[in-house]
Write a protein that binds this DNA or RNA. Structure first.
Lengths: 144, 144
DNA sequence: GGAAATTACTTCAAGCTTAAATTTTTAAGC
DNA sequence: GCTTAAAAATTTAAGCTTGAAGTAATTTCC
């Protein structure tokens, strides 16, 4: 294979390593301090970020997971009283999802600790590295 | 929260997005073209990379997954005749894992296509970005 | 050299995830 | 308007993943 593809493979291996490590630490943090999981946190964060007119499809597209996955995670949040489904009145195929007041409060009590934990995980990186990497990732995402 | 933690949170969100997208594309590639999965590929790649004296513990540490996970993925590869366990003769707790000749051949027939697919996924990134990001990721990994 | 701690691996239960199939509803093309 | 296609969500089966518990072997250290 070409020179360029080898460099990209090396990048991918490191990227995966750093991401997995960070996920493992965040999972541990959420489990120990808040008795919850990464996928539940991700769903709640998405629902917190966009409070209105979020459909199940929007949610799965936003989180880059399958529809079936979104369904079951929302099922569990709903069972715990943290999320709520509301059928659309104009399109009977569509279901809107949102946080309940309890879900909103639960997320807000998680958010600051989560942010601090992310900061701790990437503390080793200087501010310039953080910004440089964010910019590179933006370029990597262009459409895709 | 502080300015720095917000920047790191933004970085983390982008990092997760790019990684998930790449994983989804690679998973699709492996499924469609080789009828296999990411975790199986990862295990085979690790066993290919280090051919000698790889224990189950080494494997799970290397892949950043739990011991139980390594056990079941190796179980499946073994069932398909691609991997093989060999008990250590000096420590009866330890099990070495390795690719069978079939596993070796299977991995070799996958590797080039996988590398090309990774290159395709990150084609949007220029060579300088690729190298810069690799260096930043190295700095992020220092011990951790 | 024997008790206690540690290490390596597996098993288990629960939850996560995908891809495909299914159901229901809406949109498109004639 | 009617047929066909497309879209939204759920269900299902299979596989992935974790964390904890369990088994067996080795090491530590008194």
């Amino acid at each position: 294979m070409t020179e360029g593809s080898k460099r990209r493979l090396k990048l991918w291996i490191r990227l995966l390593g750093v991401t997995r490590r960070a996920e493992n630490e965040l999972r541990e943090y959420l489990r120990v301090t808040h008795d919850t999981t990464l996928p539940r946190f991700d769903v709640m964060a998405a629902l917190y970020r966009r409070r209105e007119n979020m459909t199940m499809s929007d949610l799965s597209r936003m989180l880059l997971v399958s529809n079936g996955n979104a369904t079951v995670v929302v099922d569990r949040l709903e069972k715990d009283g943290l999320a709520r489904r509301t059928p659309s009145e104009t399109d009977r195929r569509t279901v809107f999802v949102g946080l309940t007041p309890e879900g909103l409060a639960a997320f807000e009590s998680l958010a600051a600790g989560h942010e601090a934990e992310v900061a701790r995980i990437f503390a080793r990186l200087g501010d310039e590295d953080v910004d440089a990497m964010t910019e590179i990732l933006k370029r990597a995402e262009r459409d895709e």
